[in-house]
Each structure stands twice: as C-alpha cells, then as structure tokens.
Design a binder for these strands. Structure first.
Lengths: 195, 195, 195, 195
DNA sequence: CATGAATGAGACTTCATTCAT
DNA sequence: GATGAATGAAGTCTCATTCAT
C-alpha cells in the first residue's frame, strides 16, 4: 500500500521531489540526507529508492522539474508589450517559495561534477534564449520592435540581468529595489537596442 | 623544515588557500575533502589543521580572500570613462583562472547554512555598490554623467548585469558573446540613465 | 535481519551495553573504541549508532544500568540481621564478573568531565545511603538496633568500608581477606554504634 | 638554555609532573594532551620529550611520585595514639589540592591496561599496610593496643575505610561528614579489634 | 636545550545504499 | 509497496611522536 501518496506513482514522485527541492535548497545538496527527505514526507529512507534509483537521480529530476517549471512560466507570458511580460514574469517569480525562486543555486554548485546537471542547466539557458527570442521576433513582425535590434543579444542581455538580480537578492537586495532595477534595466536594454 | 612553503607561515596559509579555492570550485565545498586539499599540496591532512582550525574556517578565509581580490581589482579600475573601466575590469576577470572568476559559486551554495559566509557575500555586494557609486559620483562632479542619474540604481544594475553574465558563462555562454553583451548592456544602462 | 540480536530493539541495546560495559572496564572508556565494541558483537561500527546516538550516550546508559543493577541487588537484601544482609550482598558481588563488580571505575574517571555521569554517581551514592538507612530504621523499630545509633553515619560508614574494600581488591587484596575484613569491619561499626 | 625551569633537570621534570598531575586529574589521562601540559608550563610539546620518553612514562612517574608523597605523609605521622595519627593524616589530606588528594583515580583507570601502573598501585597498597602494621606493632609492644588484635586485618580495614571515604567524597560527601565518619569508623575498628 | 612543522594512525560519526521481511 | 536493520566507505579532526633547525 503506497504511503507516500495514496494511489499514484507519479504523485509519489512529485511529493518526494517537492520535499527534496526545498531541502536541497535549505540544507544544500550534500548536507541534505536521504533520511532528511524521507522524514519530511513521513516515510522511511528505503522507500525513496522505490522511486529514484539513487540520490543523484533525484537531484537530476528535481533540477529538470524546476527548470521546466520556470521555463513554462516564462513561456506563458505572452503580451504585446515585452516590458510588461518581463515584469509579470518577475512578479510571479517573487511569489514563488525561495527554493523555487533560487532553484538554480544547488544545480550550479554541482555543475562541475555532474555532467547531466550541467546539461540541463545549459539546455535551460538555451531554452530561455529561444523563448525570448521568438517573442522578440514576433514583436518585430508586428513592428513593435525595431528590426535593427539584435534579437539574440537582446534576449541574452535580459536573461543576464534577470539572473544577476536574482543573485543580488540572495546577497541581500530587497524585493522592492530588485523590481525597480529589473524594470529600469529592461527598459534601458530595449531603448538602447533601437540604435 | 616546513614543507608547505619554505619559511613563512603566511605563505603556507596562502598555498593552502590557493589549492582550497581551486578545489572548492572544481569539486564543490562539501565534496572536496581535506584530504584532497592536502594531497594537492603534497602534505598530510593533519598539517592543514596547523593553519586553519577547521574546514569551515578555511572556507571562510578563502571566501574572504577571493572577495577581496575581486573588490580590489574593481577598486583599481579608475578612468574618466566608466564604460572603459567596466570593460577593463571584465577583461581582467576573463584572464583569471575559473576558480577565481567564479569564486562566488561555492560561497552562494553555503549561504543558507553559514552565517559568516553569508555576511561576507552581503558585505561584498555592498562594497561593490559603494565602489561603483563613488566612481559615478566622481564623474557626475566632472559633468561626465548627468546629475539626473540615480547613482545607486545605476551601480546595482551594472552589478546585476555583470553577475548575470558570469552565471551565463557558467551555463555555456562564450567569452566573445559575453563581452559583447556586457559592453552593450552597460552602454544601454548608461544611456537610459540620462533620462 | 537484525544481527545484533534477533528481533527486539531492547535486546539489541542490552547486547551492546553488555559488551560496552565489559570493554569500558577492560580497556578504559577512552581507550575503548566504538570499533572495539562493534567487533565484539560482530557488527559494524555504524550499527551502534542505530541504537545510541553517540559514545557518550552509550557510556551514560551503561553507567545507569550498572548502578541500578547493584542498587537493586542491595535493595533485595532484606533480613532481620544487618550483618547477614551485608555478607550476602558482598558474596553476591564477588560472583559478578569484574566489569560489573568494579563498574564504577570508569565512571569515576569521567566524573570531572561529564556532568551526566557525575549525577548518576552522586545519585547512586544517595540511593545506597537511603536503602541502608531505611533498613537500619526498620531494625531500630524492632529493637534489634539501639535507638542511640546514628542511622546516617552508620550507613555512610558501611558504604565507605565496602567501597574501600572494592578498591583494595583492585589493588590486589584477595577475595578471602576482603571478605574477612568486610565482615569484621561491619561488625566493628555496628558494635561501636551502640555507644 | 632550559626554559622549563632555570638550571636543573630535576626541577624541570618536577614542573612537568606537577602540571601533568593536575591535568591528568582534571581532564583525564587520555583526554589530556601533551599539548595541554606543555601549554600550561609555557613550553612546546617537543620539550616534554626531552624529559620523558613518552606520555606513558610521564604517567608512570607522576603516579609514582604521588603515591610516594602520600606514603611519606603517612610515614611521618607518628604518635602514641593511633587514632590521633589517623586524624592528622586525614586532615593533612584534606588540605591537599584535589589532584593529589584523588591522585589514584586516573591510576586506577589505567590499571587494567598498564602493568607498570598496576604494579605501583599494588606496591603502594602493600606499603600502606606495612607502615600502618609497623605502627600498630609498636603500640602493641608498648601495651597500648591489645596483643589479641590482628595487626594486618586492622591496618587493611583502616586503609579500606580511608579509601572508601575518599571515594565517597568524590561522589559528593562533604568534608565535615567525611571527617566524622572517618573518626568514628577508626574508633569502631580499634574498639572491636580488642575482642 | 628548545622549537614548531610535519606526520600518520586512529578516533568518532554520517550516510547512501542494499536487502530480508 | 514499505520497512528498518545493517553495511562500509568516507569524512573531519586529534594527537603522540619525530626531527631538522
């Protein structure tokens, strides 16, 4: 009888990943033991191995899931106005629990040792670029953005600004200032792209 | 006969910190054992404890040193032209070995668990802001930057852009594109600040 | 399949404590490693930590158990004749394995550093006094011991004599002589108390 | 140039043994490191090895010295009245620092592993017996003690009582009560010996 | 004599993983 | 499916001892 979640394997895995994601963030990947995760769900260690073949696989799945979550969130931000889209996305992010908002932190820490994790991070980076670039191209077609703008450069700059602000927040930048900087930064990038 | 480095305690500590810094980056702080570090220097584990009372202290000293190194590097970039300063700084950074260029990565990973590390990261962030702000104010006085510009916002945005690009590079962004984006981004931010 | 002892956690703990008690006595608390204990039971070091959270806890539980064992043994010696009780108790003690007979030895060695151990030793001392005093008072009521006798002094003296003889035995006093001295000593103390 | 104590090797050894004795008692033999002892004297670890070939030798010498100290103290108590001698001895002991008063505690803890230490303890026990017996015999000759008394039994009982009271004091017995019990106990033993 | 740098063995403890029930 | 007992490898740290200076 499944205890993790009655009935469905998929839901059991989700429950585990949810706890793992939070604990990986709070304690760090290495410092978080399988016991910690199991205890949080009210299950024994052994059970986790019914769903994930080892800790590294769990890390991988958690990373993948979180990356996808944020990508999807970005993907759904569709608007005529790219600045508004960006602001909405950022606002939505601020409402996420910290372990999702800063989900990349333990992934980045593993990047040098774990090729699979490295791959998701790199793929994710590319996907962000693709999503934003396709939005920008859409707006170009509609004439809302100058055709002179370098689409790729524009999107990469926006991503960098976004990520940098996230990092700043981890280092103490307030949400209010973060929002202000994000908005102003995006505006500057867009204005300047017109040249 | 001291083996770590002939003669000077200070130099022995530096040798240890140098190895530790690289290995913390390559393997991750937790995954890097004291044995790993000792082996790299050709010394026994026990020796490390003659110089650092425990692993956490070593981490702390390494973080502090690396943070300071980068801050000093920024501090020395003085120029009439803020864009040129930024470019020089970035160029210098690209010439650093990866473990210095990305030195913040293992620090960030420990931020939730280690208050001392958290403090250096936050202090470092503030210091960056102060250094850049003071430069900007200098240029304002000389009339090289409009007085309307919001100094703090300007510097925080530049920091965010910079950090975000660093993160992007870890995720696969090429140095060439990184430089281009950095330059264009800084320009955009400066231009926009004039309004 | 539990290897320590089939089936019951309580029994596993007892098996560990039994080995620990003997080895603490034979090797000394500090000199006895968790490995030594584990090996004796035919188990891995790690297993011990499933039952006792650390070595100090194991020491504490062993002390407590041994103290209680001896107290209970004393408690059960009930007789009209206090001399006979004492002799029986002493005789029973001589039949115990050395690590139980001299169980206090490693506890005493830790007394200065370990407040919990100190507490059990002090409590144990008080309990002995209480048990013996209550027996003496019982005999006073029955008129078998003079009411002039100072109950507390009497019991403390008997305890001291007993403990001193135990110490002497560790230093080479033979069991025969020990018994003789104990009997004569107790008699002397009781006789003298009448005055 | 000797730093431990100016000039005399013997004094240097005494200084080390004095510190070692106190620290062995306070921290326990195992828990007290050579560093601890060296630091206390203001000397480096290495220096200790100029005077004692290893830690075990230091333990041995400390034990021997302390045993001798107490034996000598007993040896000097000469009086017509054995009770007065005992009381004086006990009083003198109470004025000693704890590490001398309870000097046997760490020796006893090592008894099972260290044959040399065991030997001093056993020798010491015999010496005490001899000293006291010779006193008793002296008093017998003078007719101050009945010739019926069993000299050896008498002295062994007094030793046991004494040691037991020392143990009781470690377990919390007050000095006042200890003195009272000691006096009464000795009296009882002497009285009873007459039969 | 004295130092202090270095060693290496060994201690305690944690934990991912396995497996019989 | 779930458990929990057990493992064994690994990690941090300590410390008696040595030795070149």
């Amino acid at each position: 009888m499944p205890k993790v979640v009655k009935g469905y394997r998929k839901q059991a895995m989700d429950a585990i990943m949810e706890s793992a994601s939070r604990l990986f963030f709070e304690l760090g990947y290495q410092e978080c033991s399988m016991d910690d995760i199991a205890r949080e769900i009210g299950v024994t260690k052994g059970t986790l191995y019914l769903y994930f073949k080892n800790k590294e696989e769990l890390l991988f799945q958690v990373c993948k899931k979180n990356m996808k979550l944020l990508e999807d969130s970005l993907d759904q931000m569709v608007s005529e106005n790219i600045l508004e889209s960006a602001k909405s996305f950022f606002k939505a992010e601020l409402e996420l629990p910290e372990h999702l908002r800063y989900h990349w932190i333990f992934a980045l820490g593993e990047i040098n040792k774990n090729p699979r994790v490295k791959k998701i991070l790199m793929d994710s980076y590319e996907n962000y670029e693709k999503i934003i670039s396709s939005r920008i191209n859409g707006l170009k077609l509609k004439g809302l953005i100058s055709n002179n703008a370098d689409t790729r450069r524009l999107s990469l700059t926006m991503i960098a600004l976004h990520n940098g602000i996230m990092m700043s927040m981890m280092q103490g930048l307030s949400e209010t200032e973060a929002s202000a900087i994000f908005e102003a930064g995006i505006k500057g990038i867009l204005e300047y792209s017109d040249y």
